[in-house]
């Protein structure tokens, strides 16, 4: 879709939604993912006679693609996490007919998301001091979101009924791996065995963000502004999010600070225990960190598949195929007790 088409189609949609005249300007493409297009736009809406400027992000869901839930579901998810006190962009409008494809709009926030900058640049030094507690508090809020009852988030992937939450996640990951891999990976086989033998006996099921890491949060010089990228959210073990945050790839080279290249693990554990009231057993998070490195390894295989199958010629996707070895290396470190 072209910028002027988007503006032309969204203007009557927003006029219906807001009950007043609307003008749209500055429609620009942002970096989109494989499953959605992202646009930035400014809308002037009216409350009575008073004009109001809205800076918006428009997410248009591409047809096909692997996706657990719809634009409408994701809109509800953002509203629910915001209501629980997590810093999340405010969801504003949701629709389908206006653009011929499902979409939603949320408030546009400013800040930095590029991990390489966040872990290194001097201007984020204060943010790095604040982030461990802020990220822990955001996670605690996300994990408090009610999954059932009124406004149930019943569209989320959940553990299989009657199956322990950890076993469900492991099985899902292994199934994905077996479907997607074109080559044998002994390191991954070793990791699957290691994990299978050490499953924590968790029973607690909460809203898990599923991709909570440096790179998927928006940060200002003062600290955390918003948690983004919700497409991997699911009902699962809350400690999964803590382990994922410590996966080596999200340290952007600052490896002596395992929590996202900005803090020690213990800072996260203490702050999360205080914010959530849930005790943190380091062995349980260690399990999820190993799981997380394996999961990222499987995701690199997923991403390179679209290159191997000729769906994309992107040199970036092609190169991701050669990042699998990084996760194999880190898994061996962790399994042999060298990474903790």
């Amino acid at each position: 879709m072209k910028p002027d088409q988007i503006a032309a189609r969204l203007t009557p949609f927003l006029e219906r939604e807001t009950g007043g005249p609307v003008s749209i300007a500055n429609v620009r493409t942002m970096t989109g993912g494989a499953t959605r297009e992202a646009w930035s736009l400014d809308a002037t809406v009216h409350e009575g006679d008073t004009p109001r400027e809205l800076g918006l992000v428009l997410l248009i869901f591409r047809p096909g693609g692997q996706r657990a839930f719809s634009a409408h579901d994701e809109f509800r998810l953002l509203a629910a996490t915001r209501a629980a006190g997590a810093p999340v962009p405010k969801p504003m409008f949701v629709g389908e007919e206006a653009l011929g494809r499902p979409f939603y709009m949320m408030e546009r926030l400013s800040g930095e998301t590029i991990g390489r900058r966040l872990v290194r640049e001097e201007r984020f030094a204060e943010a790095r001091r604040a982030l461990p507690v802020q990220l822990a508090e955001a996670l605690a809020a996300i994990h408090r979101v009610p999954l059932d009852g009124r406004d149930a988030l019943d569209f989320l992937p959940r553990p299989e009924p009657g199956k322990p939450v950890v076993a469900s996640e492991l099985e899902r990951l292994e199934t994905m791996y077996r479907q997607i891999t074109v080559e044998p990976h002994p390191a991954f086989e070793i990791a699957f065995r290691w994990l299978a033998e050490r499953q924590p006996t968790s029973t607690d099921v909460a809203l898990v963000h599923g991709d909570f890491r440096i790179g998927n949060v928006m940060v200002g010089e003062e600290g955390l502004r918003a948690v983004l990228d919700w497409e991997l959210a699911h009902a699962g073990d809350p400690y999964e999010d803590l382990g994922w945050l410590c996966v080596r790839s999200w340290r952007f080279g600052v490896d002596h600070l395992p929590m996202g290249g900005i803090a020690r693990r213990e800072e996260l554990f203490d702050a999360y225990a205080r914010a959530s009231g849930r005790p943190v057993d380091p062995d349980v998070v260690r399990f999820w960190e190993v799981y997380g490195n394996l999961r990222w390894g499987v995701f690199t295989l997923v991403q390179v598949r679209s290159f191997l199958e000729g769906l994309s010629q992107s040199v970036e996707l092609a190169s991701i195929g050669r990042r699998t070895a990084e996760t194999e290396w880190e898994l061996l470190n962790l399994i042999e007790g060298k990474g903790f």
Binding site: P186, A187, I190, G253, R322, R323, A325, E326, E328, W329, L332, I335, E336
Partner: peptide, 19 residues
């Protein structure tokens, strides 16, 4: 087994990411 797999992965990283 672990020594072998580590040696193979190390060789892969020598090519892809020495850092």
């Amino acid at each position: 087994l672990l020594a072998h797999v580590r040696a193979v992965v190390r060789d892969k990283l020598l090519v892809t990411n020495r850092a």
